[in-house]
């Protein structure tokens, strides 16, 4: 079911091109013909956007762990997972592994903090959500406009496990944020949301593969994006319901706005269904800012630029409003508002 070939930054032959169906809209090979030189060391600078929320931390600086790489959560815990990149033209790989023990509640606050330029980052996260455990993963990504990054998360849900994910990104030169989630046992519940706000010639590709392998699982997905200038947003969502996964309820929506003449949106929402007792739906819209609404707002005295920003913000905030943790929600809201 893997949508990602095993990418190895030291071997250019493993870089997918658009000829690989799952990478149709994110041609890594085009931008990266040769394996990059390995990155040197980097300093852990500022404390990161989620510092005020406390908790434990796993930190990678140019792929090198600053301390531990694995975390086992029990009870109620907060973990900040920081991928720090500060490199010029070099590449690095980081891998973290997170386990939520039965009944644990983990708030996982992940940040990709990129500095420098033209680096290549490859991040891997494995998350196991045990029986009746809950993991909320919130990801904020800010990278230089000429960076290339691929993030792959593999999430496994046990019976009654709950998983909540919200990815918020401003893109890069080529950026792939991939989540592969499997409902391995019955009654698991997943929410996978995404938000992208792209300017200039940035690109991002939010790809999710959700595999319902057991009965009575639910999946709810909402991804929203806005592209400006010549930016390119990609959403690929695949929901698989395997034979015997009866009682599955899976819903996926992607709504995008092209706020410029030459922005681009590519979307591929897939349903692959082998069980009959299911409720599955996906919706996809691509549009532009509503001209009538824009006029209405301006008529009340709000200048055109502000009116546009207001509509964009309102459009995107719907994703953030789905975050249940109030403190984290406020951080994400402020983070996004500063980048509108």
């Amino acid at each position: 079911m893997s949508a990602a070939p095993q990418i190895d930054l030291t071997n250019a032959e493993t870089f997918p091109s658009r000829r690989t169906e799952a990478w149709k809209y994110s041609d890594m090979k085009r931008w990266l013909r040769e394996a990059p030189e390995p990155s040197g060391t980097a300093l852990v600078g500022a404390p990161g956007p989620f510092y005020d929320l406390g908790g434990e931390a796993i930190v990678f600086a140019n792929g090198r762990p600053v301390g531990v790489t694995d975390f086992i959560a029990s009870g109620v815990q907060t973990l900040r997972l920081r991928f720090i990149s500060d490199a010029v033209g070099t590449g690095h790989t980081a891998a973290a592994r997170i386990v939520a023990r039965p009944g644990a509640r983990l708030l996982l606050l992940e940040t990709h903090e990129g500095k420098g330029s033209a680096y290549v980052a490859h991040n891997k996260v494995e998350i196991d959500v045990a029986r009746d455990a809950e993991v909320t993963r919130i990801v904020l990504i800010e990278e230089p406009e000429d960076a290339i990054s691929v993030t792959n998360a593999e999430v496994r849900l046990e019976a009654g496990g709950r998983y909540r994910q919200t990815v918020v990104t401003t893109g890069a030169k080529l950026q792939r944020i991939e989540t592969q989630l499997s409902h391995g046992a019955e009654g698991a519940d997943a929410r996978l949301d995404g938000l992208y706000l792209l300017k200039g010639s940035r690109h991002t590709d939010l790809t999710t593969v959700v595999d319902h392998r057991a009965a009575d699982g639910t999946t709810s997905q909402l991804t929203k994006g806005v592209v400006h200038d010549t930016a390119r947003g990609v959403f690929q969502g695949k929901i698989i319901v395997e034979r015997g996964a009866d009682g599955t309820d899976a819903r996926m929506a992607h709504n995008a706005l092209i706020a410029s003449e030459r922005g681009e949106i590519d979307a591929k929402p897939e349903l692959i269904i082998y069980a009959d007792d299911v409720q599955c739906a996906h919706g996809n819209t691509v549009g532009t800012l509503d001209e009538s609404a824009l006029f209405y707002i301006q008529q009340r005295g709000i200048p055109a630029d502000e009116a546009r920003a207001l509509l964009v913000q309102a459009f995107l905030f719907e994703v953030i409003d789905r975050i249940e943790d109030e403190a984290a929600k406020e951080v994400v809201r402020a983070w996004l508002t500063a980048r509108l």
Partner: peptide
């Protein structure tokens, strides 16, 4: 379904 929009004035809706 594949949806590829390269113009800002497009209105595409898929259900």
């Amino acid at each position: 379904p594949y949806i590829e929009a390269r113009n800002g004035s497009a209105q595409l809706e898929h259900e």
